[in-house]
């Protein structure tokens, strides 16, 4: 008996230790990013062009921030719309073969390496136009987030009790009114969470942008058919550059990006937490 008790103590201790070790990096990352990066962040950092690599003033990430906001917005609208209606179909017509196959495809799509999605966007929107462009980036990001949004919207609608659906139909409402007004407001937390997850994904994704938006411009937005920059892509390019000054900008940009992601994450948690009825 004593030997078993001892074994229990040791094993549970080891498990706790390993669990704590696996959580250390997230705290280290947040602390490192903010302690290294925040000192470069100021209002002008959010607005200005990046500095020249060697000499020159502080500079900033203005074009990349603008680019990121445009890309996140477009991707959330395009991917959100396709993902939402796809998810609604998956939930409400889940008995159909079409829904079952689509759901399987989406589960595989979630696991697609995102760089492959970048290659696809390159094939259909960059190569034919012979120019890197913002729309190709937004298109790629939309594809990245469609499965996340669709699968989460499906969950949101699935969680509505059947009896509420019956109640809505018994009032003589049409299909669009039942699903897009009455039941949508019942499922709004779940749907909102789905969109927020999509936004966070779109904001942090880098690989597809590498192949679509080019990202080296020193200009703000010039049109959807023109190259554009984005914060994650700037971080990648500057971090791997040989210039110390650009490394600093990369750290500062990371602090900004982390703040964006953390904000979306916290909002999505609050949305879920708000008293469930």
């Amino acid at each position: 008996m004593n030997r078993r008790r001892l074994e229990e103590k040791i094993m549970l201790g080891v498990i706790s230790l390993l669990a704590i070790i696996s959580a250390i990096p997230i705290f280290a990352i947040i602390i490192n990013i903010y302690s290294e990066g925040l000192k470069y962040v100021s209002l002008s950092f959010l607005i200005d062009f990046p500095p020249p690599p060697i000499s020159g003033g502080a500079g900033g990430i203005g074009p990349a921030l603008v680019g990121s906001l445009i890309l996140i917005g477009l991707a959330t609208v395009i991917g959100g719309a396709i993902g939402f209606f796809t998810g609604l179909y998956l939930s409400e017509y889940s008995h159909t073969k079409l829904a079952q196959y689509t759901q399987m495809f989406l589960q595989i799509m979630v696991e697609f390496p995102t760089i492959i999605i970048g290659l696809f966007a390159y094939s259909v929107l960059v190569a034919p136009l012979k120019r890197f462009n913002a729309f190709a980036g937004a298109f790629a990001l939309s594809i990245v987030i469609i499965p996340y949004i669709a699968l989460n919207v499906r969950e949101a609608y699935k969680s509505i009790p059947y009896t509420l659906k019956e109640a809505a139909f018994s009032l003589g409402l049409s299909y669009p009114k039942v699903y897009l007004r009455v039941l949508l407001s019942t499922a709004k937390r779940g749907v909102l969470t789905a969109l927020l997850i999509g936004m966070a994904k779109a904001g942090g994704e880098t690989a597809p942008l590498l192949l679509t938006i080019l990202g080296t411009t020193f200009t703000y937005f010039e049109g959807l058919d023109q190259p554009i920059n984005a914060i994650p892509l700037l971080i990648y390019n500057f971090a791997l550059s040989p210039y110390e000054r650009w490394h600093q900008v990369a750290w500062g940009a990371s602090a900004v990006l982390l703040t964006i992601i953390l904000t979306i994450f916290i909002i999505s948690r609050l949305v879920v937490k708000e008293v469930k009825i």
Binding site: N32, E205, T206, I235, A239, L257
Partner: peptide, 25 residues
């Protein structure tokens, strides 16, 4: 709390892991 921390880890952009990996890890 622990689950939130774990979910947050899953939603950090990979470029942030990359920067941290390159200069810290």
């Amino acid at each position: 709390f622990v689950n939130n921390v774990s979910d947050l880890m899953a939603s950090l952009p990979s470029v942030i892991y990359g920067l941290w990996g390159l200069y810290v890890l």
